[in-house]
Amino acid sequence: MKDHRKEIYDTESRRLARIVDAGHDPKEVCGEGELKAVWKHQLEAPLTSDLSISRRKLEEAQLDAQDSPVTFGHLLQSGNPPLALLEKVKDFGKASWASEESPLPPKIGTMLYFAAVAAARERCDTPITSLGRLQLRRGVKWCHEQEWVDPDTRALFKAYLKSTKKGLWPFSWLFGM
C-alpha cells in the first residue's frame, strides 16, 4: 500500500483541499460522466437489492427474467408490470431527492421515478403519482433528453410524451410542455 503521508507532503496544497471538500459534500459522489454507467448498473440491479419484496411476489409478477434475478430493467421493460412493484420503484427513486442520506445519486433517483410513472401509464394505463399532468410531462421530457439514458427507457419516455400530448393546451409548447 502506498505511503500517503509522503505524498501529502509532496502534493500541491490546492489539490489537498479537494480531499477536504470531498469529505464535506455528501451529494457529490459520482460525476456527470459516470451517470450512464450508474444508470446501466441500476437497470441491471436485482429488484431485491433495493426494494423490500419477497421472492414469492416476484414469482407472482411473472416478469420475463427466465432464470436470472428480476432486475429494474426487466420490470420497466415488461409488457405487463405489476403496479405494486412500479410504485415501490417510484418511491425508491423519490427517496433520493428527499433525504441527505439518500440511497442514490439524485439524477438517477429522478430517472427511476419518472421511468416507473411512465411505465405505469403506458403499460397499465394507471397513474401512480399525484403530480399534475404538466409537471409530469416536464419531468419525463427532462429524462428523455438526458444523454446517459438507455435506448429502451428513452423509448418509454417518448411513448409517454406522445400519448399524453393529446388534449394539451394549444400553446403549451411555449412553456416547455
Binding site: A22, G23, D25, P26, V29, C30, E34, A37, V38, H41, Q42, A45, P46, S49, D50, E101, S102, P103, L104, P105, I108
Partner: peptide, 25 residues
C-alpha cells in the same frame, strides 16, 4: 471508473456503491 468500482467491490446496485462512497466520506 464506476464500472471498475462495482466489479472490484462486487456491488449489486448503485445504491450499494453510493452507500459505500458516502460511508467512506
Amino acid at each position: 471508473p464506476y464500472g471498475q468500482l462495482i466489479q472490484r467491490f462486487d456491488l449489486d446496485s448503485p445504491s450499494e456503491a453510493y452507500n459505500l462512497l458516502n460511508t467512506a466520506k
